[in-house]
Design a protein around this nucleic acid. Sequence first.
DNA 1: CCAGACGTTGTT
DNA 2: GTCTGG
DNA 3: CCAGACGTTGTT
DNA 4: GTCTGG
Length: 232
Amino acid sequence: MCGRYAYFYKLNQVLQLIAGGWTTEEAFDAIFNVAPTMRAPVILLGKNGEPGLTKLTWGLVPSWTEDTSIGAKMFNARSETIREKPAYKEPFEKRRCVVPISGFYEWETLRELKRKKPWYVSPSDESIMLLAGVWERWGTGEDRLDTYTVVTTQARGRMAEIHERSPVMLRGTDWSTWLTGTQEEAIGLCEPREPDWLSFRPVSTRVGNVKYNDPSLLERVENEPGEQLGLF
DNA sequence: CCAGACGTTGTT
DNA sequence: GTCTGG
DNA sequence: CCAGACGTTGTT
DNA sequence: GTCTGG
């Protein structure tokens, strides 16, 4: 699944992908530790029907809720049930979006060591990783809050060795189909696939703490102190 | 009809 | 807002 | 997702 | 153990 990721593209790299697209910002800061409730770049269709890049808050807040803090736990939506769940049904029908990321973090549970091991997962060819998402608008005027969530599916291949769930990754021109296709076409893109285009790299447990946000989080760490022998 | 939920993951 | 459960 | 808090009254 | 905050 996907509860933490990194984004460090230049604006032009993403704009080239959605050739001719609009943007609400002159630049998007690199974030090496995006967590739920934070704001990050998202591609969605504007009023003119053209895709563009803007900043939304991670963690979908349904339009009808009173308490927006519910968003903190709505950062993933299961593709298997996204068409039925009240909070996600309409966003899936009318407001699908694409989340451009550099790579995501995944925590592998090491049961015998009673600890979790974070991995950084990213495309081997350094292409832009595009995740399937849906977004929602809460409130009006000053109080307006636009939020998004990342769609998940069953993990396959190498991915499944680390975690049972995986974000839905859009390959090639699938991102365009996700944004403008029919519901049937969109749900079809959520079928589990073996991600043989991905690289996996163990990283420091520092990534667990959102106060850390720098490129060193991406560095390979073969063994955390004490991991090998389960010391301490 | 009204009341109450509306989410996922992981672990047991 | 919309669906489910009673 | 993980990390960190988890409480109230009264006084400044 | 469970909730909140980032």
